[in-house]
Amino acid sequence: MNIIPIRSSCSIRVTLNGRPVELAVRPEALLLDVLRDRLQLKGAKRSCDMQVCGACTVLLDGAPVSACTFLAVEADGREIVTVEGLGTEERLDPLQEAFIDHAAVQCGFCTAGMLLTAKALLAEDPAPTRERVVHYLRGNLCRCTGYRKIVEAILACAHAR
């Protein structure tokens, strides 16, 4: 038995924001760096770098993950959505609209992660209670807004359905 490890670049295929992408990544490459530095998708941010803050959140097959602590090679064959894939400028996602309307955006550094986390929540539970929203946001920090407007934005979006 001889198992060959990946030592250098290996090719991965990802459905990224709905489009197929193929690229070569090294085993130690983090998804966040690949998205930001190679694919120029700068929406996901690096902050705490420890899966506490949620600034780097992306959706992996619909579920939120921390791109800062996720190997890019693991994305092979999977679907990734970043904030850039959430809506178009002409047709924003309802969450994006709600975040604007409710002033849930201040410095914006947490915004992508908040939006994507909320997106995953609403996919799972289209009409969450306030408690559920707060529980789901446990891993998304915001130092500007005081959270209230973010929670309101998500709830407004949920109720709009």
Binding site: P64, S66, F70
Partner: peptide
């Protein structure tokens, strides 16, 4: 456990 992202992975 932790948060939704940690629970996912």
């Amino acid at each position: 456990v932790a948060n939704i992202r940690v629970r996912t992975i």
